[in-house]
């Protein structure tokens, strides 16, 4: 088939599908953000951005993403290299590491709350070891740092596997001849990782990062479970507008703000980790 038409034929199904099931409802919702009644207005945006919790939830969301995503990236790279070099038990170890994928964020919040709450597992453990003489209240407004740490840990636990799976699938495609050649020339393992694995893995890294970052801005359930009312995030505020305040215009405005942030970061990642057509070194 003609190489000029072929790509369009290939993307046609997705485009049609998304137009019907995403773009159409999206436009309807987005329209609400710009209107109160019938006329065009930015009033909804003004309302949500001037609310006193907006800067706090914005800061919390960004901070959390900034803390969690790099750690997840490093961790998933480490895990992916570890698992590919394994000779025995590779399947089993990879399976164990991907277990959190199967756990919904609501359930993950539940699990980590059972660990961190006052009568939870962490306190039981510390109590048993004699580190503390009575249970500590980790998730209280007096220790915002600990609350943040707990949320970050739960998020790292829950969502690292998303990146891991993408990277493992990508790492497998790197021809082993490259590594063999590098070894012949005496490149150290660290050098091989830097010079072969990382550049060859760029497409997968890009995908993993983009998806992970977008999901990080939508974080909600785990935060609600562990942070309670102490740690407002953008998505929580969006739901509050939609379902508690019944203000779908403001909710749509919030969602569009999150969308704008996501697009911004996506473009940055795409730019930094540009993927050449085909793969070549």
């Amino acid at each position: 088939m003609n190489a000029r038409i072929l790509p369009y034929v290939l993307i046609l199904p997705v485009t049609l599908f998304l137009c019907v099931f995403f773009l159409y409802p999206f436009v309807l919702v987005a329209k609400q953000a710009f209107s109160t009644g019938a006329c065009f207005t930015m009033e909804n945006f003004r309302e949500v951005t001037t609310y006193w919790k907006f800067p706090i939830s914005m800061r919390n969301t960004l901070l959390l993403a900034a803390a969690v995503v790099p750690i997840q990236l490093a961790l998933s790279l480490l895990m992916a290299t570890m698992v590919t070099r394994m000779q025995k038990g590779r399947d089993l170890v990879l399976y164990i590491w991907t277990i959190p994928l199967g756990i919904s964020d609501l359930a993950a919040g539940l699990i980590w709350l059972a660990i961190f709450e006052q009568s939870g597992f962490l306190n039981t453990m510390m109590n048993g070891l004699g580190v503390v003489d009575k249970p500590v209240n980790f998730l209280s407004y007096q220790h915002p740092g600990v609350v943040f740490l707990a949320i970050a840990l739960a998020e790292i636990w829950r969502a690292t596997a998303i990146m891991l799976v993408i990277l493992v699938a990508g790492i497998g495609l790197i021809p082993k001849e490259y590594y063999e050649a590098a070894e012949v020339f005496g490149a150290s393992p660290w050098k091989r990782f830097l010079r072969i694995t990382l550049p060859m893995l760029r497409p997968s890294l890009q995908t993993a990062l983009v998806l992970r970052v977008i999901l990080a801005f939508e974080i909600f359930a785990v935060v609600a479970a562990l942070g309670g009312t102490l740690f407002p995030v953008l998505m929580g505020e969006t739901y509050a507008y939609q379902f508690d305040l019944l203000n779908s215009g403001a909710a749509a405005a919030m969602a569009l703000i999150i969308l704008a942030i996501s697009i911004g970061f996506t473009l940055i990642i795409l730019r930094v980790l540009r993927v050449p057509k085909g793969a070549s070194i």
Binding site: Q118, S119, N137, L139, S140, T229
Partner: peptide, 19 residues
């Protein structure tokens, strides 16, 4: 007040656990 209250939504749980 238990400072963990910002996480409490169903007080039966904390009554039962003794928190």
């Amino acid at each position: 007040t238990n400072p963990g209250s910002t996480n409490f939504s169903f007080m039966q749980e904390q009554l039962l656990s003794g928190d």
